[in-house]
Write a protein that binds this DNA or RNA. Structure first.
Lengths: 217, 217
DNA sequence: CTGGATCCCTCACGATACTG
DNA sequence: CAGTATCGTGAGGGATCCAG
């Protein structure tokens, strides 16, 4: 990142910490759970490895992320957010929704960020619709599973890498198709009958899922 | 601005628009009202004029700001946020509070951003404390007035350039001193008796002012 | 005097090759 | 797999210059 702003201002300092190129996208990808270097590299489509390396060191120095040994079966190192880093979720969700408003349709061949979709899920979640509800969903996008849990109306999303113990409903599709369903461009029933959305569990629950996540007017 | 990220993701697109260096600080300064080129240059302490010029054009192209002729007595051009640009207030406030948590005390000689202080005011405003309250305050920092209005518990802050028609309370001090009062490092009564805070109106109202703005725990 | 545009230099970033 | 090393490019920093 270029020189610091040097102003005494919370926003200026925040930008000193996470204002560098790629930094906020790294945080975005870590919001769904710990990741390896190469997972980050893949999710950031095009980031040079030296820049990724430099950013990870910066973020670690600032106490936003932590370098740690990966648990059990997987070996090696991984990166995860600290508590302080996780507090970026709220500003990031708001900023993501702001940006989404002027984002055109996906261009063919344009990489769709899975973690960006998860961020959109956090942003479009309707607590009023979910009030009192308890469910868990496994969302599988391009073969990568994400566990979405609603516990008495409260939402939590994590990568479901640890051999999930079977959610009530499993939804498998592509990121593009999923996005279409999220914003209402495609209908759930159609997607199921045409095979673009595979549902394990009741279709009613699948429909309910998409009612939980709707952009505000 | 650096190259675009090219990912289909709301956050990535937001960063394509306002992720360039200085961009978010420009938006921060415009949140308090329209400003001239040189006002922005002054508030951004150290920005090269060519960069400011380029950023303003970018932001205008993206529909975040608007170039306009300045109203009456002042002549020339000014820049102001569009409705879309003003929607950045919420993410910016959140991000500013996040950054403020790890910001040390002001270094001597370090420029203190007036508009950053105003952003902090928006972030630390306590609607619960202000419930039902209607008051207007004129805050004068380094001679530059800011009008802070609470209307039935709702907050609005603008630059009070247009010969303010006298608020109930006027507070005049330096940015540093004001910040100390905001975070509770200094006491209102002490500041008044030592002449570092000048109050026009009742001291009780001055004390109430600082109760309206308190950082969350 | 405001509101910029132009020039030059430096360094952060991008791309890729290479190593523990 | 997880980075480091190397090198070219262009955005940003800084000062000066020009137009209305």
């Amino acid at each position: 990142m270029p020189r610091e702003y040097g102003q005494y201002c919370g926003l200026a300092h925040a930008l000193d910490v996470v204002g560098g190129r790629w930094s906020l996208l790294i945080v975005r990808d870590l919001l769904t759970g710990p990741k390896r270097f190469k997972d980050l590299e893949a999710g950031l489509s095009g980031i040079p490895t030296n820049v990724l390396s430099a950013r990870l060191k910066e973020l670690e120095d600032f106490g936003v992320i932590r370098r740690q040994l990966l648990p059990r079966p997987a070996k090696g190192v991984g990166y995860e957010l600290t508590d302080y880093g996780r507090e970026l979720e709220e500003p990031l969700v708001k900023l993501g929704l702001w940006g989404a408003k002027t984002m055109g349709p996906a261009v063919k061949g344009q990489p769709v960020s899975l973690d960006g979709l998860v961020l959109a899920l956090r942003g479009t979640f309707r607590p009023d619709v979910a009030a009192g509800l308890t469910r868990s969903y496994d969302l599988i996008l391009d073969g990568r599973p994400v566990r979405i849990s609603v516990d008495d109306g409260r939402l939590s999303i994590t990568s479901a890498t640890e051999a999930a113990d079977g959610a009530e409903v499993t939804l498998a599709t592509t990121p593009e198709q999923f996005l279409g369903l999220l914003v209402g461009q495609a209908r759930v029933d159609d997607a199921i009958t045409t095979g673009r959305l595979t549902v394990t569990g009741s279709k009613t629950e699948a429909r309910r899922f998409f009612k939980l996540f709707q952009p505000s007017p």
